[in-house]
Design a binder for these strands. Sequence first.
DNA 1: ATCGTTGTACACCGATCGGTGTACTTATCT
DNA 2: AGATAAGTACACCGATCGGTGTACAACGAT
Lengths: 187, 187
Amino acid sequence: MTSTPTRKVGARDRLVSAAERLFYAEGIHAVGVDRLCAEAEVSKRSLYQHFSGKDAVVTAMLRAQAAKSVALFAPDGASPRDRILAVFDALDHEADSSDFRGCPFLGAAIELKDLDHPAVRIAREQKLALTEYFAEALRAGGVGDADLLALQLTLIFDGASAYSVVQGGSTPATRQAVETLLSAHGI
Amino acid sequence: MTSTPTRKVGARDRLVSAAERLFYAEGIHAVGVDRLCAEAEVSKRSLYQHFSGKDAVVTAMLRAQAAKSVALFAPDGASPRDRILAVFDALDHEADSSDFRGCPFLGAAIELKDLDHPAVRIAREQKLALTEYFAEALRAGGVGDADLLALQLTLIFDGASAYSVVQGGSTPATRQAVETLLSAHGI
DNA sequence: ATCGTTGTACACCGATCGGTGTACTTATCT
DNA sequence: AGATAAGTACACCGATCGGTGTACAACGAT
């Protein structure tokens, strides 16, 4: 058996989980494969049987984060306006937790510094997905130029994430900015 | 002589310059002290005579960047509104250059992940300085709640910086968001 | 001319980096 | 029971990590 619907937690999954924790908390370059394997309770040899190298682990880890994040977006019942604000409320809440280190996709992209790196590609797609989530809600709310406003909201999202990394915690300015932008477009 | 007004470019300055280039382009953890010294054309021994360690070089490098950046803000003659927009125009212009890797202060803060690191402290002060620059212009423009709006502009600034790192290049959404926010506050 | 500063060259340190080779144990499926 | 896949233990590789010790050359100021 190579892969069944209900999968046992194997070495691969434990590696990805450990990678999510460690790379996010301490940085990709700051965590070596030995540390990673030890924390995942996986032999070093197993890592290289599942992945072609550290980069592949990084990519898999970001992919796993992306899969979880898209699910997080949508509290589907609410109004378009609330569906948008919910994202920022969630971000503010996370930003006030002590172990928040900013958006993991943005963090990885900044640390890797290579637009062509597969992990950065995932980060890019993830940001586009967030923008599309905003755009969809805006269209449902009857906003013209939904794409442009959605991009502006993404800017604020990443700005708020950056704020929490540099200053620590969240700021009411985030929600204020979002509400001003939404009001200005009649929603 | 330890320090005179007109200073010769010594080992220290060359190290800081090289650090600005390398750490920004490739990341702090990705550049070792050997590489740094080689690029600065400075012996490794000299580095440790001027700095207590790599961390101190990182801090000095961010401090140097900060000193240059504050000067960049102010095109003093213009109107409050234009003084604000000038910052975002400059950012957009930089973001379209191929070697732009985002705001160096944000980058360092994300990579170091420690609010107490001296370099991150500098980053924090730098962001506060930018916010204060915005606030001053807004006050001159007669805006109430200048501090809060200034913070919102800083969010957009960092969001736009993040955008360029993940997507490459700039986006018109930045300027649109700024203008919407300014208009909403009557400026 | 001499003296302290500033810098260089270079060998060296233990630790860690990403990655591999080999041999062994443990499961799972039939 | 036997075969096959999945995983472990551990030693090892060259390279690089941040940092140090020592000895020697170039310098500017008096």
